[in-house]
């Protein structure tokens, strides 16, 4: 079994399948995370209660965190291997190269990855551990967020980073279908629509929230 898995992983398709599955896991988390954050609109009581409830799940939180961490690691590791393979596959580049089909999102996947990773680290230090937050109060998520986003450049940073996340999600959310072999000529355009919708919802919420705070709609 192990050898079969390794053999499978040794092919580029195997690595892509791993990326698809881990990517899907992370995307699922992002959706839930974004929907949860939306409770900011209902005020401090509701958001802080939600955060407290999540914290109270004890070991489950850690299991969840470890799963995500493993997914990120596998996703990134596979991406790097594929990137190295792809770089090596064209040692001499074209003088002139034009694209017809590919999207900005597809071409920036490989750079989007590390940038998002850096952002996530900052985000964790900022809102989860508080190390990058001047007035961090453990447990008061609402205050932490609103205070954080009131600094205009932090809000802009979040907005820009989440645009990248949205692009990454757009290409990723139809790619995993293609990679796992889910295709049918009749329904294929729905893959793109689904991907755009997913990226739009997650990215939209994540951009909407800092904006709401920055514009003073929520204080």
């Amino acid at each position: 079994m192990a050898t079969v898995a390794l053999k499978f992983y040794s092919t580029s398709i195997g690595k892509k399948v791993v990326m698809a599955i881990t990517g899907l896991t992370l995307a699922g988390f992002l959706l839930v995370h974004a929907l949860g954050n939306l409770q900011l609109l209902w005020g401090p009581a509701r958001l802080n209660a939600y955060a407290a409830k999540l914290q109270s799940m004890g070991p489950l939180v850690w299991a969840f965190r470890l799963t995500l961490l493993a997914a990120v690691a596998l996703h990134a590791f596979s991406a790097v291997l594929l990137w190295l393979q792809n770089r090596a596959s064209r040692p001499v580049r074209y003088q002139v190269q034009q694209y017809r089909e590919t999207s900005y999102a597809a071409r920036t996947m490989i750079w989007g990855g590390p940038i998002i990773a850096l952002f996530v680290i900052y985000h964790l230090l900022h809102f989860t551990t508080g190390h990058a937050h001047g007035t961090f109060v453990k447990g008061d998520v609402y205050a932490n967020v609103t205070v954080g986003f009131r600094v205009w450049w932090i809000a802009i940073l979040y907005i820009v980073a989440n645009m990248m996340v949205a692009f990454h999600l757009y290409h990723g959310m139809w790619s995993w279908l293609q990679t796992l072999g889910a295709n049918h000529p009749k329904y294929n355009h729905w893959r793109q629509i689904f991907a755009a919708a997913f990226a739009g919802v997650v990215g939209g919420i994540n951009i909407f929230l800092p904006l709401v705070v920055l514009l003073g709609i929520r204080k």
Partner: peptide, 16 residues
């Protein structure tokens, strides 16, 4: 894989 081709990252340039 042995021949040294790259991996598909779903750009779609091939079909174009």
């Amino acid at each position: 894989e042995e021949a040294g081709f790259g991996a598909c990252t779903n750009h779609g340039e091939c079909e174009a």
